[in-house]
Amino acid sequence: MKILHVITGLEAGGAERQLRDLVARQRFASEVAVLTRPGLISQVMQADGVKVHHLGMRNNRDVRVLVPLWRLVRSGGYDVIHTHLFRAGLYGRIAAWMAGTSVVVASEHSIGDQHFEGRRITGAIRALSRAVERLGNVTIAVSSAAARRLAGWGIPAERIEVIANGVDAKAFAFDPAVRQSTRTQLTIPSGGIVVGAVGRLEPGKRFDVLIEAIATIPDTVLLLVGDGPERARLVELARRLGILHRVILTGASDEVPALLSAMDVFAAPSQEETFGLAVIEAMACGLPVLYSACPALEELPADAAPGARRLPSTAEHYHRAISDLIHTGISRLPPSPAVAHYSIELHVERVEALYTRVRDQRSQSKVISPAGRKQ
């Protein structure tokens, strides 16, 4: 079986890293098509020997990308087209339908109640999603919360498959030597307290809450891993509060495990998440976690995530919780049951089983493609 993964961009976000981990472990031959923003993860995947096709899409409405994408799908001999993120799901399903591909799967990695992928959800977006969804076979929701939201858009429940994201626990395991070397590179004192966060720098992630929260906690550094449109505003906020010297913005990075090892507390003040992959990765590194939304944890029993605490997304609450942790003493924790529950191996196994099931279902029915070929 030959797979083509289609994704909107390959910057260092959660969906992009999840795709990298999936492709690295799939037993099927896999290639990747990226519509726009090849980015850091594209470089990492190519270095690993993955064939990545850059299609050069200029903006959300650049429908010209359909031509090279359709040509790639038609000529590539792919058995499965698997799209990731909304825009790739839109154009990828259309191109696959035009090329007569039999098995088309779409993963929704970033869909909230009010926003998706940093944009506000509108009635037009819901209608477009419903129309294009019919061109594929099944949509993967990365959490039960995401499945409920898709059903609320009008996607039939029988066409939604919940397959949770996966984490490579070994890759994110705490390493004292890496902690020291990473802190040295970032000029962080070995005994200083580091509050960290990972994610795209966009308004919905609410990283401004963390800057305000640590402003009056002395000898504390905020380490923000990621890049995005909010960077300049966050820098200005830190400057205005007089703590720019205590805020480190690394930009996009493929060294997330090392940066987590350098942290003492992980914080995720976003009020709306589809899964909460960064939280599970932080727990794999043994960090105490403060979060405001994480469906991955909210769908598990309370005792599955010791060391994780849910808070309202306000600077006051995060300030108090961070101060309490410092006062009582911060220590590394063993990986929680939640980490084992969301293993990357299980994720890959379930995705591949879905490909096989859909292929077998399609082979049992005679389907005429737009090109007039039997599939």
Rank of each mutant, 00 (worst) to 15 (best):
V142K: 05
E117N: 09
S129Y: 02
V34K: 13
I125C: 07
R58S: 07
G76R: 11
R64C: 07
L90C: 04
R130I: 00
S129D: 05
H115Y: 15
A99R: 09
V52C: 14
G56C: 07
T83V: 13
G56N: 14
L69E: 07
L85H: 09
I41T: 11
H84W: 11
H115P: 02
W97G: 01
H54W: 15
M98R: 15
L35S: 12
V138G: 00
A95M: 10
L85S: 08
I41A: 08
S110V: 04
V138Y: 00
S110H: 14
H84L: 04
Y91W: 14
R126W: 04
H53C: 08
H115M: 12
R87N: 05
L40M: 10
I140G: 00
T36F: 00
V67R: 14
N60S: 10
Q43D: 08
I121V: 12
I94A: 12
Y91N: 08
R119G: 06
N60H: 07
L69P: 09
H84E: 00
G92E: 05
N137S: 15
D79A: 14
K51M: 15
S129H: 11
E108D: 01
Y78S: 03
R134H: 06
E117A: 06
D62W: 15
V105C: 01
A96V: 10
M98P: 06
I121F: 02
R87F: 05
